[in-house]
Design a protein around this nucleic acid. Sequence first.
DNA 1: ACCTTCTTCAACTGATTGGTTGAATAACCG
DNA 2: CGGTTATTCAACCAATCAGTTGAAGAAGGT
Lengths: 122, 122
Amino acid sequence: MDDQLSRVFAALADPTRRDMVARLTEADATVGELAAPYDVSVQAVSKHLKVLEEAGLVTRSRDAQRRPVHLEAEVFDLMTKWIERYRRRAEERYQRLDAVLAAMQEKESPARGTSTKEGPAS
Amino acid sequence: MDDQLSRVFAALADPTRRDMVARLTEADATVGELAAPYDVSVQAVSKHLKVLEEAGLVTRSRDAQRRPVHLEAEVFDLMTKWIERYRRRAEERYQRLDAVLAAMQEKESPARGTSTKEGPAS
DNA sequence: ACCTTCTTCAACTGATTGGTTGAATAACCG
DNA sequence: CGGTTATTCAACCAATCAGTTGAAGAAGGT
């Protein structure tokens, strides 16, 4: 797993990390703040953040001892682009398939209302 | 990792699986056909398909000895919904932030470009 | 029936993951 | 300087993952 798209998908495959991302859409937060609601150690959350950071989903700055975490929402576009691209292709294919089926209907229906489709000449 | 959203993200975190999904947008395919381009055993591809299937991304039917794999593109919507939801929230937040910054600019701008951040009132 | 084709199941392996605890680092507060 | 707070690093562990090989199932072809 080395490309960014893979890292982003993998990062969001974990419910805890998704929840952190969700909360970060509301406000930046420190590691400690992020860790508070979960029943795991701060270190574990720190590791989760590292995953999100390596995926490019968050960045961290420095404020005294704190390391505020900031969401980088642009990375979402990477996924959206991939998803939409292939969903569109899939949908186009369904349309082609529909056309083929319609053609078959027409051809192989030598008179006779063969159930559903009516395909009267046109 | 037990909810479907997690499974879908996890499934797509693998480049091989993404590529399989991409190819399935063009046409249904058998396990063997799907395996052909990759430098791994057919069994490995069969496992990948199981992951995609458990994520709800593909279904399999039966055609003689073959098990044609079919893409179920609707599941994409699950991800798109999640992503868009939080991206929208993040964007709204940026707008709020912009407003706040603009307000601060106006208020605290008695001369002085103090570059970075500055504790107001301190 | 046999044989071939396509696919999956089972067992094993090495790498990665998500968690732990304990020690180290970084920066502030007196 | 010493102490406190926030965070990370390091080592370890159990579970999962992605791959392997070998055997078993399932369905047709002859």
